[in-house]
Write a protein that binds this DNA or RNA. Structure first.
Lengths: 338, 338
DNA sequence: CGCGGTCGTGGTATCGATACCATCAGTCCG
DNA sequence: CGGACTGATGGTATCGATACCACGACCGCG
């Protein structure tokens, strides 16, 4: 070493000094500029290796004004397998575009979600895909995010102007509930999600509409709408089934509730039919008939990535707010014995 | 508007012009410097709101030379619930420290892992926690990453000097296999992971050691070690069980293999005992006795975050390579009927 | 009334990397 | 042999934000 190494990360100037060239030559070498002599190129690369130098992407991006090549994904609950599939779909498309994807977990906490979005925009990610936790979307408005494109997944925008990729929450729930009714169930319980969320209200709407279409009434005592985890779902299902004149079937509004309902039903003597939103990868292994509302979560992610990439490409994307709906498919695991 | 808005993201200078103050005053206002007159403060904040201005964190970090406050996590397979728990544990600790966590998925692709690590280091994240996919760890050496601290999870470092948080792969497998033997099984199949990975070789070692300790021999025809997904695990399990003189029990080296083995066993007439590494959240719902090697994945993440934070704090962390082992616990789901 | 001291504000240099232009050596051709 | 030209290299300004210093206004006190 010709001199004392600087304490912090080595910079391009350090490499230049070490290789006895100018910083410009270092920059060119690392940018694969062909106009660098093989001799100097070698010296630079040696110095880079000797110092463990690594170009500072943030400074580079600042100077170039170019995009960061990053797509940010804010998911509501990393422990939910649905989001894992969503993530894979997003990655599949981003890969083709040569973009990198980073994920952050809001933990279904609106304040955290707000901070994460703000942070992603401040770091100038090229685009953001968010699964909003609450119904307040002001913080997701690109106009308030220096124009960073935003696409919502699984929830439509509320008072802001962005694209969204949705599930057919209403239709899927309607169809599955109707199937229970067609099997002769007239008292059907509902394990739902908070009414303040889009999925929570849509799936409830689907449930209620199916009952109404069959001339049945929604009984509030059969409905619970706030189970944050499987244990709570078990408790709610048990409470519903412990009433006098209990339902003969349950509809669960997502995978957590389906698992909870399954556990509750399994531990009792009477048989209760079960249907639920979200497929389970072990659905066919359960020893109870189960109807699920299934959908291609990966496709949902892929489409969301496609939309956000279109916004990234078009400097003037127009003000068309697109809503794309991913279809759902009802699967009856009673019909297909493993 | 007093003038045409600039096309790109508004900058501090734009805000300054709009508010008729100098960029310095804008900077001070946004930094909550008390030496700004309320009057000008208001003008600045109004301009910020009017322009949708957002401070550029990258430029800010560059100037301040301060840390980014980001912890990067590179996980091997986002679809594996184990990693979701790991992520939650990391987040729990990072939250307490006021750090943000971003995740990236290597998809068990070593080249992708290399790119992601390089990218995280180039963007000057404060620290990296990685679950390495292969046994080649050169790209994870902090010396080659401008000194960015690295902690490995679930796999010890190979020829590099970093801390790691491990599972008791050997012990857990040994104990569970021994339990199968104690139940009278003398022919035990093994669904493993690639031998080139740490977990793959350790879990195989545990299996083999348990057999040997009981005076049994490892039969190669009972061993398959490369099932990348559940379907492949089903196929391998079926192949093992279809042989003449088949095993009466199987050990599966991770949750994918356990599920695959379960499916294979379930579709045949004879009963086959099953044990596996990784707990399943539906383990108690399966209609077959099941032994699992369980552990606190969240704790693993928490400890990894702790270690990497210590490195971030200590400017000279010493060269002690620590390895912390998270204990495993064997759970017998036959014993605790739901 | 003048002098030192605070307080609010703006100018300038800088973080690390690169675009642009200047420069200088070497080459080719009229 | 000289001038124009190509090609490698270095100097300078800049991206957006902020640390540091400088400056003018205002205050109180002798």
């Amino acid at each position: 070493m010709t001199a004392a190494e600087p304490s912090g990360s080595p910079t391009m100037r350090d490499v230049a000094d070490h290789a006895h060239v100018s910083p410009m030559t270092v920059s060119r070498t690392l940018r694969d500029d062909p106009s660098v002599t093989p001799e100097k190129r070698r010296r630079v690369l040696d110095a880079v290796a000797a110092l463990g130098y690594r170009r500072n992407e943030m400074a580079r991006n600042l100077r170039l004004g170019s995009s960061t090549g990053l797509l940010g994904v804010i998911i509501a609950n990393i422990a939910n397998p649905f989001y894992a599939q969503l993530a894979l779909g997003i990655e599949a498309h981003a890969d083709k575009r040569g973009m990198r994807v980073v994920f952050a977990n809001s933990g279904e906490n609106p304040e955290r979600e707000r901070q994460l979005v703000s942070d992603f925009a401040a770091r100038r990610l090229d685009g953001i895909i968010a699964v909003p936790t609450a119904n307040q979307h002001d913080h997701l408005d690109p106009a308030a995010l220096s124009g960073t494109p935003v696409v919502l997944a699984a929830s439509p925008p509320h008072r802001i102007n962005v694209d969204a990729v949705l599930l057919d929450d209403f239709g899927g729930t309607y169809e599955a509930t109707s199937m229970l009714i067609a099997r002769g169930h007239h008292r059907i319980g509902f394990l739902g999600l908070p009414a303040a969320t889009w999925t929570g209200s849509e799936r409830y709407r689907g449930y209620a509409a199916a009952l109404e279409a069959a001339g049945l009434r929604v009984e509030d005592r059969y409905v619970r709408r706030n189970q944050p985890d499987v244990a709570a779902a078990v408790a709610s299902a048990t409470a519903i089934l412990d009433q006098p004149d209990p339902p003969t079937a349950l509809f669960a509004a997502n995978n957590r509730n389906t698992l909870g309902a399954y556990r509750a039903i399994r531990s009792r003597a009477e048989t209760v039919a079960l249907a639920g939103f979200d497929d389970l990868d072990v659905a066919d292994l359960l020893d109870l008939p189960l109807i699920v509302v299934s959908y291609d979560a990966r496709e949902l992610g892929r489409v969301a990535a496609e939309l956000v990439c279109e916004h990234i490409d078009n400097t003037a994307p127009g003000s068309s707010t697109r809503r794309i709906v991913i279809p759902t498919k009802v699967i009856d695991y009673q019909q297909c014995p493993s």
